[in-house]
């Protein structure tokens, strides 16, 4: 029974399909379920995160996000607030609260909000 208890999560993890890359069109079609968050996303993050040539990881594309997500949400939030590489501070969302930024990062990284 104990073996089954430990083996089951491993078996389920093995069943999980590896992430597949998204096309820019598939990425651009995604938006947060929450209307207010969706408006913030549309007026800021989307300008770069739905454009393949921008260099920003495409929204929802876990092949581009998983390595970033592994850094931890705290690190990603701080990068967003103070800017990181080509991304300007605040990610162009000047009315976002820290909670808004955290929710937008989770959405773009393909994690449940």
């Amino acid at each position: 029974m104990r073996r089954l208890f430990f083996a089951l999560p491993l078996a389920l993890a093995a069943c999980e399909a590896p992430p597949q890359p998204l096309t820019p069109e598939q990425s651009a079609a995604l938006k947060p379920a929450d209307a207010r968050l969706a408006a913030l996303y549309e007026s800021s993050c989307k300008a770069c995160h739905a454009v393949a040539d921008s260099g920003a990881p495409l929204t929802g594309d876990r092949t581009q996000w998983d390595a970033r997500w592994a850094k931890g949400e705290t690190v990603l939030l701080q990068h967003t607030q103070v800017g990181f590489a080509a991304m300007p501070a605040g990610g162009q969302c000047f009315t976002c609260t820290p909670a808004d930024h955290a929710a937008l990062i989770r959405f773009m990284a393909g994690r449940a909000q």
Partner: peptide, 8 residues
Amino acid sequence: VVWQNWSG
């Protein structure tokens, strides 16, 4: 929270 312009 900090605000910065694009150029920093």
